[in-house]
Simulated scan of single mutants.
Amino acid sequence: MDKNILIQWAIAKVIREARNALDISQVQLADFSGLSYPFISDVERGNVGVSIAALLQIAEVLKVEASELMRRIEAELKRGPQEPEKVPGRPRKMDKKTGATAASATKE
């Protein structure tokens, strides 16, 4: 297995766990860190690498020392990180009268 992929998976797990511990959304993490929501989403799905600058911004928002974040990532690597769970996006609101989702209702 490609070592870069394993690193991305470890980072994904550590960031998701720290974000969930603070009970903030990916959108909030993106807003507070100055990074984009699609980037944060890709990071947490293990799809992209992360620069040190981005890790520092994320660590600050997560109220974790950057060194502690790295320690957690290293520990996850030693455990043998697993591919992040690919969770679908949030459910769309359904119109009670028509039964259509909000997205399909706007297309009509």
Rank of each mutant, 00 (worst) to 15 (best):
T101E: 14
S104P: 02
M94W: 03
V14S: 03
L77E: 12
V64Y: 03
V14C: 11
P81N: 14
K3S: 14
V27A: 13
Q82K: 14
R72C: 09
F32I: 11
I24T: 07
N47V: 11
Q26M: 09
D95G: 02
I40C: 05
K107I: 09
E65T: 02
R19K: 10
P88C: 02
Q57C: 05
K96I: 03
E108S: 14
L55E: 00
K97Q: 11
I5Y: 06
S104C: 03
G34M: 10
A100Q: 13
G99Y: 01
A53Q: 10
A12H: 04
K96V: 03
K13F: 04
I24Q: 07
P81G: 12
V64I: 13
P91E: 14
S67T: 08
S67D: 01
E65G: 01
R45L: 08
V27M: 12
R92S: 08
P84W: 15
I5K: 13
M70R: 07
K97N: 09
G34T: 05
V14D: 03
N20V: 09
I40V: 14
I40T: 02
L6Y: 05
E68K: 12
S41D: 11
A105Y: 00
P88H: 01
R79L: 12
G89F: 14
S51I: 06
N47W: 13
A103S: 15
N4D: 12
E17Y: 10
Q28C: 06
F39Y: 15
D31E: 12
F32E: 02
K3F: 08
V87L: 09
L22T: 02
N4I: 04
V14G: 07
K107A: 12
K93H: 03
K63I: 08
V14N: 04
L29C: 07
E85K: 14
A100C: 06
